[in-house]
Amino acid sequence: MRYEPPSPVGRLLLTPEDRDAPARARRLHLLGLGERAEPSLDSYAGHLADLTGAPFGMVNFLGADTQFFAGLHAPPPPPPAPGEPPRPALGRVLPRDHGYCPHVAVRRRALALEDVADYPRFAGNPVVDEYGIRSYLGAPLIDSTGTVLGTVCVADRAPRTWGKAGLETIKSAAADLAGRLEHGLV
């Protein structure tokens, strides 16, 4: 049998390995986070959406295999086009390979995707087809121990320019929320 190297596109679409997942799970457990929806985090997700004018806002805690939106602000799915199946509503749990938050957590840096179609690495992500996501802005929630607890993010079904102001807004929100979470203020 002849060896066939993996296609470059296939490599681009892989969700990065998260070596920090076990430490994150321990830290989230210690803080009592990541296992249930939190009304205060739903409010914070709504605040993120309002700050950026985005229809989706999320506070996301990442596990080894899944993502959990402990804070979620999401519009209902749009009506399907004639002959198209309806899109599902965004739920609280997604597989780890859906979306862009795992990339933010592993990179430990904010990420702005103004139009995911412009980035081959991100355009094939399942959230594009399943939920119609076309733009994303997210930042890591890093606590005082240096642990990335998860992310805060916003998304839209339309391409949008986040700009430097959007990056600064999401990074500031992440720093604010990380401090609040660590001190039990949420």
Rank of each mutant, 00 (worst) to 15 (best):
P159G: 08
L177H: 01
P80N: 09
D118K: 10
R157C: 03
D65F: 07
V127D: 01
H47V: 12
V9D: 14
T169Y: 00
P95H: 09
L94R: 01
L181H: 07
A64F: 02
G146H: 12
P120I: 10
A45T: 06
P75R: 01
R26Q: 10
L167M: 10
P88G: 12
D176V: 07
Y119L: 00
P22Q: 06
R92T: 04
A21I: 05
Y3E: 15
L13H: 03
E38L: 07
T151L: 00
R11H: 11
R2T: 14
I170Y: 01
S40P: 08
A49M: 07
A155M: 15
T169N: 02
R36N: 05
L111E: 02
G83P: 11
L149K: 01
L185D: 12
P126Y: 03
P77Q: 07
L51P: 09
P80I: 12
L30G: 12
R26W: 05
G63A: 08
P16F: 10
R36E: 13
Y100W: 03
A117C: 12
P140T: 09
A70D: 06
R134S: 08
V59S: 09
L137W: 07
F69H: 14
L177K: 01
L62H: 09
A105K: 06
R109Y: 02
A37D: 07
Y119P: 01
A74R: 04
F122S: 04
G138W: 05
D156F: 07
D176P: 01
L33F: 01
P76L: 05
A54K: 01
T151Q: 00
E168W: 08
R87P: 11
V154I: 09
F56P: 00
L141R: 10
H98G: 05
R27Q: 10
P8K: 09
H103V: 11
P8D: 09
S144M: 06
A178H: 11
L141C: 13
A174E: 00
A21M: 04
L167R: 13
S144G: 12
A64S: 14
